[in-house]
Design a protein around this nucleic acid. Structure first.
Lengths: 158, 158
DNA sequence: TAGAATGGCGCACACTTCATGCATCAAATG
DNA sequence: CATTTGATGCATGAAGTGTGCGCCATTCTA
């Protein structure tokens, strides 16, 4: 857990917005030289504060027109069942995100799919038949109000 | 909706994994010249197939140790209530993602927070008191099984 | 079917960006 | 007070970027 000063925070916020910013652009934004930005960026990358850079693709433009959240309850909470379920989740590419949760459901999955048939396939042919799974409840996304996935770094001051 | 060929798909998949790939690296990966990759990339960006590039930050390294999913049910489904709720969601920085859903709950929020106190603050002081909100149910993330947020482009063939 | 038009391609090249060596400076250390 | 430590800007060679150009294959047209 390396120290992160206010220059670093400004850089992180900027790179969160635009991951392809040039060191020179970064320099102009935060008030350092480009070379220093280069060095700081490498430092943050090596320390895994920046875990990676990703292009954000428009799913609709590529035929992914459906987002679904799927709540899963396991049959029993045995380590064996949990392990099998994890393996299942990792095997299915359409499942983009998966979390184990407190509360009613044991797991929450996010799937990005082409259409309702794909959802039906996953739910009825992949999830439901799996022996570790006791209960499946899926919800379809009607609208995305917010999808920044950006940390509120403004709040931070060290 | 511009046409996307197999070269484009390879580039998109690669840039999804590493958003700072060089045109030359891209060229080596997909089997084109760097100049052509530059042109194709610009085309995909202009057409908004690539909607942006983002640095992925490690929340834990910055003190965000808690992820919560919050299910919201509105008091009534009036346009006015929906509008007020949207405004609320956009005002709160800690809410990273927000979706309107089919099913039991009307909205699903994802919040990335520092600690349980922050969650309590949001739920009890921001969401619950809001007149449009009838019911709030929050679940804490115990474990992230998968968090690629990457589209399964392998499937695509045009 | 011949000729023209179109569009995708690689190469060349001027320009920009990158990362590292180096000297400087300020703060911390002994 | 002398020394060490580490962050900084500048300079620089190497690498990356994007555009003009000519080439080629495919498609269109008469």
């Amino acid at each position: 857990m390396i120290p992160v000063d206010s220059f670093d925070l400004k850089m992180l916020a900027a790179l969160q917005d635009d991951g392809r910013l040039t060191n020179q652009q970064l320099a102009d934004l935060v008030g350092l030289s480009a070379s220093q930005c280069s060095r700081r960026r490498m430092r943050l990358e090596e320390a895994k504060v920046i875990s990676g850079y990703h292009a954000d693709l428009a799913g609709e433009a590529l035929g992914f027109n459906l987002i679904a959240f799927i709540h899963i309850t396991l049959a029993t909470h045995s380590p064996d069942n949990a392990k099998k379920f994890r393996a299942l989740v990792n095997r299915v590419d359409d499942i983009q995100e998966a979390y184990s949760l407190t509360g009613d459901a044991d797991y929450l999955l996010k799937a990005v799919l082409r259409d309702l048939k794909s959802l039906s396939d996953i739910v009825n042919n992949v999830l439901m038949p799996h022996q570790s799974v006791a209960h499946v409840r899926s919800s379809i996304v009607l609208d995305r109000l917010k999808e920044s996935a950006k940390l509120p770094l403004k709040e931070l001051q060290r």
